[in-house]
Design a protein around this nucleic acid. Sequence first.
DNA 1: TAGACGTTTTTGACTGGTCTAAATTAATAG
DNA 2: CTATTAATTTAGACCAGTCAAAAACGTCTA
Lengths: 234, 234
Amino acid sequence: MPTDAVEDYLKSIYRIESRVGPPVSTSQIADSLDKTPATVTSMVETLADRGLLSREKYTGVELTPAGEVAALEVVRRHRLIEAFLAEQLDYEATEVHDEADALEHHVSEEFTRRVERVLDYPAADPHGDPIPPADLSTPEDAGTTLVAALDPGERGTVARVSDRDPDVLEFLVDAEITPGTTVEVVDITSFGLVTVRTSDGDEHGLPEAVADRVYVRRAAESTAATDGQEAGDA
Amino acid sequence: MPTDAVEDYLKSIYRIESRVGPPVSTSQIADSLDKTPATVTSMVETLADRGLLSREKYTGVELTPAGEVAALEVVRRHRLIEAFLAEQLDYEATEVHDEADALEHHVSEEFTRRVERVLDYPAADPHGDPIPPADLSTPEDAGTTLVAALDPGERGTVARVSDRDPDVLEFLVDAEITPGTTVEVVDITSFGLVTVRTSDGDEHGLPEAVADRVYVRRAAESTAATDGQEAGDA
DNA sequence: TAGACGTTTTTGACTGGTCTAAATTAATAG
DNA sequence: CTATTAATTTAGACCAGTCAAAAACGTCTA
Ligand SMILES: [Mn+2]
Ligand SMILES: [Mn+2]
Ligand SMILES: [Mn+2]
Ligand SMILES: [Mn+2]
């Protein structure tokens, strides 16, 4: 029943909520969907009428449980399709997004299940975003942003790279900073340059805007200062 | 640029043209798309304005070369998607149609090429409908309808079964009258019952409406009456 | 050749999604 | 506490696609 537009709004609100929390403002939605604020106001009204979100005028919106379920269904389809494109049709991680953005509104539940089965129930899409299972039960373990998780000298595993800016994503993929790889923070300057070493030994300087789009999990118990042990689990 | 609706109209007109030829009437289109005649009139006006078809009021429409190209692109995507669903996701031939009908408007050229490549350039969809190649050059060899092609006693290979009526399709699939199988016409009655024997030896009585949806190619040079030779190429 | 009848078009209306321009509101700086 | 400013909402418009009801058309029959 929901139209493409409705699904896109829900998905967008969901993603903003899970990044910065509610309330989600009109302009945040407008930016992320590339619509005018007037358009967004009108749409969130109808979404509120349908019980998919609660709205306080001039403040913002927040998904209701029903809205969150609907959003998660879209997110699930989106990520599953991305995984599928990468896996079965040999798409690059940088190419899957737009295709999935169109398809996500038009695949049936049947299709979704079959894709999931063929891929053997993948946990994450090609960027590392977790794929909600059919019961939509995922708590969204996103990992922590690079500088928040690691001090200089520490290592971690990349859990996820944001796919929001295609250029940033392209850069990260080229640098081999992708889900599953290991990174070590070499240095963090006061002016926001983060230098990391990747598993192939290369060093890359990441401006803050880029570093903030890399999410990692600390390598278990191997703080460089307190512990010389560096046995790697590649 | 064309919307889903525009593509559906073009596809529908194309299929009617290739079945009964132009001009295609308002009501034929309305029937096949399940729209009211008023709606169709309004849409064919805009299609004519865009140069996709020529129209004579109160008579009907005919695709222009541009319209035919656009239609063939949709048909190509549709059939490729059907083949893909059957092949890679294990759909039954009876299940692919609706899914493809939605997806056909939302897959990119890139996607289409990749699917085609993965399937190794398939010639036909699961019902036997030919898949136009990327240059859209296909002349559509559809095969000939069962009673037109075969006299009683003759055999032929099923080239194609119409997918228009899901129930008929289901029946044919159950009877194992599907593209690639061999059928022998046992008897044709004056009142339109066609009895055929399938390769497994079973006989099936097909009412005219069903028989007309099975397209075959005569088994080369093995007319039962004039020739005892029945060497089979399965 | 005049109806009658079925088909097609016209008319007018509605929904969903979008925009621009104008009005309103909330937050903030003086 | 008021004035400026930025964000938001309202007002009014438009487009695509659709339908129901009414009018126009063309054909075929009596
Ligand atoms: Mn989308
Ligand atoms: Mn993604
Ligand atoms: Mn369609
Ligand atoms: Mn088909």
